[in-house]
């Protein structure tokens, strides 16, 4: 859905993260939301009401649509989180009535 315009700054370290078990190459210093979008991921969570797929909307920390689970902690804003090497990310999915 998104592409990088240019090679990333060679001064920034490459980092490796995992999303739903898939390894993704990202760039140090960028937000998790940007890294996932660049890797073609657009569904970050399921709506807790209907389970409908949701993805980033405002990218400035206001809409809470980009919530993901990072290293076991759900409800994290991908757009406000800087990628760290080894991050293990899963979609945030809490659907009404589920155990």
């Amino acid at each position: 859905m998104f592409r990088r315009r240019a090679q990333s700054d060679p001064g920034l370290p490459p980092v490796s993260i995992r999303f739903e078990g898939r390894t993704i190459a990202a760039t140090g210093g960028e937000t998790l939301a940007a890294a996932l979008l660049a890797a073609g991921e657009e569904v970050f969570r399921a709506s807790p009401v209907s389970g409908a797929p949701r993805g980033p909307f405002c990218l400035m920390g206001a809409c809470f649509e980009c919530l993901v689970e990072i290293d076991g902690m759900p409800g994290q804003q991908a757009c406000m989180t800087i990628v760290r090497d080894g991050m293990d990310i899963r979609r945030d999915r809490i659907v009404e009535g589920e155990e």
């Binding site: 859905m1 592409r3 990088r4 315009r5 240019a6 940007a34 660049a38 405002c58 757009c79």
Partner: peptide
Amino acid sequence: WTLPGVLTVGALQILLKSAGMVPAG
């Protein structure tokens, strides 16, 4: 407006400014 792939224009601006990213399609 809740579908993935729908963003604010501000969000596109942020991707552009902070990650050098633009929509592929």
